[in-house]
Structure formats: structure tokens, C-alpha cells
């Protein structure tokens, strides 16, 4: 296990009716913003759900900050946060109560967590709603509550599956700024997105996954050089997906 890696995935495999993830190797360095791209059904979410401990893999290994996530999931989960595209939160709790609960689950000191929660609610524009129950919130507001929950326990590895879905432009900017801030502070962020512009502007490295396999990986410049042109990420992505489909 390499000490410079926040996430080290090897030979990860998962089969449902068909092979969803096919002997995938993925290495994400500490302090890196990594964007995982791919067409619908490529296996991005399945991969990340296995990393987050939500889905058992059929084969392979997962190491989070050097800890074997399959042998010692509790230790790995202590370091991670997961946000899905569908914000699953408690309708009957307020954002403040939700954050208090999450912080306690991760064993964070109550006073520190409260300060952190306050800062997150302010940054995400939820401060005035902090004592309202989430049942009446829009999808975007719920997404922001879920994101605040992911950040309130100060994780080292943040895994986000389409976190910008349902957010308005201003909220999306706040979220992106928050994530960049965390990366600058030394956190690692792995994010799937269909918004290629976000990956282009924010990610240190980009991985493209097609049919459960990583078909390309590198910085934007490296990907462009692999593509042999000065094409946009969108052009490269479309070409990679088309090539993989042909090869299959």
C-alpha cells in the first residue's frame, strides 16, 4: 500500500445482471481533486459505493489512507464522507439537528462540531433555515444539508456522486468553493459528474470509466496529449466513449 495514496483500489469487480465494474484499478493521491467521468451505466456510482462501504465487491481490494477498507471498514469509514446524488436525510430533523447527529456518529467533539456546523451552514446559505425541519426543503437545499453533513466531521477523503445535481448556480458555486477549500487544506476529493466543465476547471486529475473499466486517466493536459489534439474535454470524452464502444 503506497503511503502517498488516499485511495488505492485494485482489481475491483462487481457483477449484477452484467459486469458493472471490471477489475478496476484506481489510485488517487492525497490532497488531490479527482473527477471520475463516464457515460450513464459505466460503473462510476457502483465503484464509489463500494469504496464508501455501501456495497460489497465481488473481488479486489480497497485501501483508504493506507487502511484496508474491506478488513477494517469502521477505521476506513472514520476517514471518509459520502454524498450521493439523491440526498437522503431525515425529513423530521432540522439542519442543525442533522449535523449534530452526524458529528456524534463520527465521534467528533461537540463544541468543535458546533463551530464547524455553523460555518458550513453560513457558507451554504442555510443559516436562516437551521431550525426548520427539512421536510419542506427543495432538492437543492436537501443536497446542501447532506453536503454539510459530509463535511462536518472533517473527513480526509470526500466522495461525491453528482453533488451538483439540483443546485442553482449560486449554490453550485458555494459548493465548488467549499470543496476547493478542503482540497487546499489537504483533503482528497473524488467526484463523479456529468458536467464536464466542472471537471475541466476543478479536477487535478480526471479518470474516464466505460463499461466498468478505466479507459483513460490523467491531467487535462495529459488527456489532451493522449487524444493528440487541442480538443475540449467534451470532445475527448465523446471520442473515448465511442472508441471503447467500438472496441467492445
Amino acid at each position: 500500500m503506497r503511503p502517498d495514496l488516499a485511495l488505492d483500489v485494485r482489481g475491483l469487480t462487481k457483477r449484477f445482471d452484467r459486469l458493472a465494474v471490471d477489475h478496476l484499478d484506481l489510485a488517487v493521491r492525497k490532497g488531490e481533486f479527482y473527477a471520475l467521468l463516464g457515460p450513464n451505466g459505466a460503473g462510476k456510482t457502483t465503484t464509489l459505493r463500494m469504496v464508501a462501504g455501501l456495497l460489497p465487491p465481488d473481488a479486489g481490494s480497497i485501501a483508504v489512507e493506507g487502511r484496508d477498507a474491506l478488513r477494517d471498514p469502521v477505521a476506513a469509514k472514520q476517514l471518509m464522507a459520502w454524498v450521493s446524488d439523491e440526498p437522503l436525510i431525515y425529513d423530521k430533523l432540522t439542519p442543525a439537528e442533522y449535523l449534530e447527529f452526524v458529528a456524534a456518529l463520527w465521534g467528533r467533539d461537540a463544541r468543535e462540531a458546533e463551530a464547524s456546523a455553523h460555518a458550513l451552514l453560513v457558507a451554504l446559505g442555510l443559516q436562516q433555515h437551521r431550525h426548520e425541519r427539512c421536510e419542506g426543503f427543495s432538492k437543492g437545499m436537501r443536497q446542501k444539508v447532506a453536503l454539510a453533513g459530509a463535511l462536518v466531521h472533517d473527513p480526509q477523503l470526500i466522495i461525491l456522486d453528482e453533488p451538483l445535481t439540483g443546485l442553482d448556480a449560486v449554490s453550485a458555486r458555494h459548493v465548488k468553493a467549499l470543496l476547493q477549500e478542503r482540497v487546499h487544506a489537504g483533503c482528497t476529493v473524488i467526484m463523479t459528474t456529468h458536467i464536464l466543465e466542472v471537471a475541466e476547471r476543478m479536477a487535478d486529475r480526471i479518470g474516464v470509466i466505460v463499461a466498468g473499466r478505466l479507459v483513460a486517466e490523467g491531467t487535462l493536459a495529459e488527456l489532451r496529449s493522449q487524444g493528440g489534439s487541442e480538443a475540449s474535454l467534451e470532445d475527448l470524452f465523446v471520442a473515448l466513449v465511442a472508441d471503447s464502444a467500438e472496441a467492445a
Binding site: K92, E97, G107, R111, E114, H131, R133, G136
Partner: peptide, 26 residues
Amino acid sequence: SRQARPRRGFRPLSRHQALWWKELLL
């Protein structure tokens, strides 16, 4: 949305207590 009565601050709860508190509140 319904407003919940604000409390003074986060309480130092163990993980087990946090789960109890959440279930009872819900």
C-alpha cells in the same frame, strides 16, 4: 417547513446515545 424549537448547542453524545436520540426524536 415547520420550525423546531432551537436548542442551546450541540450536546456531547456518544454514538450510541446519538442513535437513541435520533430515533426518539423522529
